[in-house]
């Protein structure tokens, strides 16, 4: 017998996927195969429902891969993709280095403190992300708080150039994405069975080697989840590098902005976005697999 309840429950996530991912992606893919034009909207062919099947075939015939060839032709795009992936990797490692100790500290804290600590991690989300990035401009500028403080305590004689550098971009990214790293790691560390550590120590393991032999491997699912949650959005990051970075910071988000706004070439901008998505699908699929394995292991 056909199970309506089951069908309904399963269909909800698929409808979600269809409406919020596949349909927009189809539109972007369609534009990426079109040519730019001086019109509203600025590309052709446009999808004309009233022309029916003939109109659709005409549109299909006008499609080509010219924009994708262009992306291969000019080394700018490949460099921008690579540079974005590199920045995302470095940011991910930095965020992990900062986030793991925080998560570890939270998990080791007395149980009655944990909700408060959790709250402190989530609290910054209550303020606009944009305002928090702007605040870093005030901190890192040549007349900013950090420089004033360093001058005051006498560590430096001249203001450091911090703003508009790669360092500022990394600071901004690590700060913004830290909760995405801390929360999944904390979730795994909190569930960690303390008896295992005790057993290790009883068997003559030092606390440090017990940490490396037991805590770290068991927290791996959280670490991997945190790394993906940071890496994937940072690759396409646009706001942080454009506010905190200098003109030399090359990222694919900025290239996409230029194609869309400065060149008003929506088809090429869409092609950049499609390739970006393909680059990101690889880690997303790996993430999915890892999650599945973790779930199976948990059962």
């Amino acid at each position: 017998m056909f199970n309506f309840r089951r069908f309904f429950l399963i269909s909800v996530p698929y409808i979600w996927l269809l409406l919020l991912f596949l349909v927009p992606f189809g539109i972007v893919l369609k534009i990426s195969l079109s040519d730019s034009a001086l019109a509203i909207p600025p590309y052709s062919p446009t999808f004309d429902l009233s022309a029916g099947w003939a109109g659709f075939r005409e549109m299909w015939a006008a499609f080509d891969f010219e924009n994708f060839l262009w992306l291969v032709d000019d080394s700018l795009y490949i460099k921008a993709y690579l540079s974005s992936v590199w920045i995302a990797l470095v940011s991910m490692i930095l965020t992990l280095l900062v986030g793991y100790p925080i998560a570890y500290g939270m998990a080791k804290a007395p149980e009655e403190w944990r909700p408060t600590l959790m709250m402190l991690i989530i609290l910054p989300f209550w303020t606009s992300f944009l305002i928090r990035v702007y605040a870093w401009i005030g901190i890192l500028g040549s007349q900013g708080y950090l420089n004033q403080f360093l001058l005051w305590i006498g560590v430096i004689d001249e203001p450091l150039v911090l703003l508009n550098t790669s360092l500022a971009v990394y600071i901004g990214i690590v700060y913004t994405y830290l909760p995405f790293m801390v929360l999944p790691i904390y979730a795994t560390l909190e569930k960690l069975d303390g008896d295992l550590l005790e057993a290790a120590e009883d068997l003559g393991c030092s606390r440090i080697s017990a940490f490396w032999l037991i805590t770290v491997p068991l927290s791996r699912p959280g670490v991997i989840a945190g790394c993906f949650l940071v890496f994937i959005p940072v690759v396409g990051e646009f706001v942080i590098p454009s506010l905190l970075g200098g003109s030399r910071t090359l990222m694919i988000g900025k290239v996409l902005w230029d194609e869309f706004f400065a060149n008003r070439d929506w088809p090429l901008a869409s092609a950049v976005a499609v390739i970006l998505l393909l680059i990101l699908i690889i880690p997303i699929v790996l993430f999915q697999r890892q999650q599945q394995r973790a779930q199976e292991a948990g059962q």
Binding site: L76, S247, T249, L250
Partner: peptide, 16 residues
């Protein structure tokens, strides 16, 4: 020409 100018501008600014 716009594409050429934007591309040249990116080359000047970023060195790429």
């Amino acid at each position: 020409t716009q594409r050429f100018a934007t591309r040249m501008w990116t080359a000047i600014k970023t060195g790429n």
